[in-house]
């Protein structure tokens, strides 16, 4: 996610309840849900800190991938059988049951590859730009990141300070 570091403020907390208080305070102070992010080193149940539910379209990717993989599988099997037409064990040149195995594997590979791409895309990764972050988050601290603090940076800081440790 492209975040303007200068306009952002990151608060670190040790206690999850303090994070809940901080998010609530920031909401009440007028910050939008999309501008307040919680950074943790472990997944919490969705909405545990009162943050906004994230929407995504990940489920489209496997279907698109499967369709691509299916097409490649069909093309490959049909093309190779036509290009080198030998009768094997009395089976027809275009034998559907064996083709199904390769087509199936192709579809699954396509679905999985596109799912991986989708996960990275929807996670907004890779993101090598400068982003507000603190190493202590990996040591158990919880971060509350206000991405568009603008001129209300002081408000953001006060909300965070009042929330708790």
């Amino acid at each position: 996610m492209a975040v303007n570091v200068r306009e952002s403020r990151l608060g670190l907390f040790r206690d999850p309840d303090a994070v809940v208080n901080a998010v609530e305070s920031l909401r009440k102070a007028g910050f939008r849900g999309t501008d307040v992010k919680v950074l943790t080193d472990t997944p919490y149940p969705e909405g545990a800190f009162g943050e906004e539910t994230e929407r995504h379209r990940l489920y489209v990717f496997p279907f698109v991938g499967a369709a691509c993989g299916f097409s490649v599988g069909v093309l490959l099997t049909i093309a190779t059988q036509i290009a080198y037409p030998i009768v094997t064990g009395g089976k027809p040149i275009q034998s559907i049951p064996p083709m199904i195995h390769v087509i199936y594997e192709g579809s699954m590979l396509g679905a999985i590859l596109f799912t991986i791409m989708g996960i990275l895309f929807e996670s907004r990764l890779p993101d090598f730009g400068p982003t507000p972050y603190d190493r202590r988050i990996s040591e158990g601290y919880l971060g509350v990141l206000v991405t568009k603090a603008d001129g209300r940076a002081d408000v953001a800081i006060v909300c965070s300070a009042k929330a708790g440790p």
């Binding site: 992010k37 997944p43 995504h56 990940l58 996960i119 996670s123 990764l125 890779p126 730009g129």
Partner: peptide, 27 residues
């Protein structure tokens, strides 16, 4: 890759685990 641990990233990690599990099982 710049992973920060935002709620969005964790949600997608969780879904990734489940979705990829469901896709890999037939394989």
């Amino acid at each position: 890759m710049g992973f920060q641990g935002t709620s969005r990233q964790w949600k997608l990690q969780t879904i990734a685990g489940i979705l990829l599990s469901a896709l890999i099982l037939p394989v």
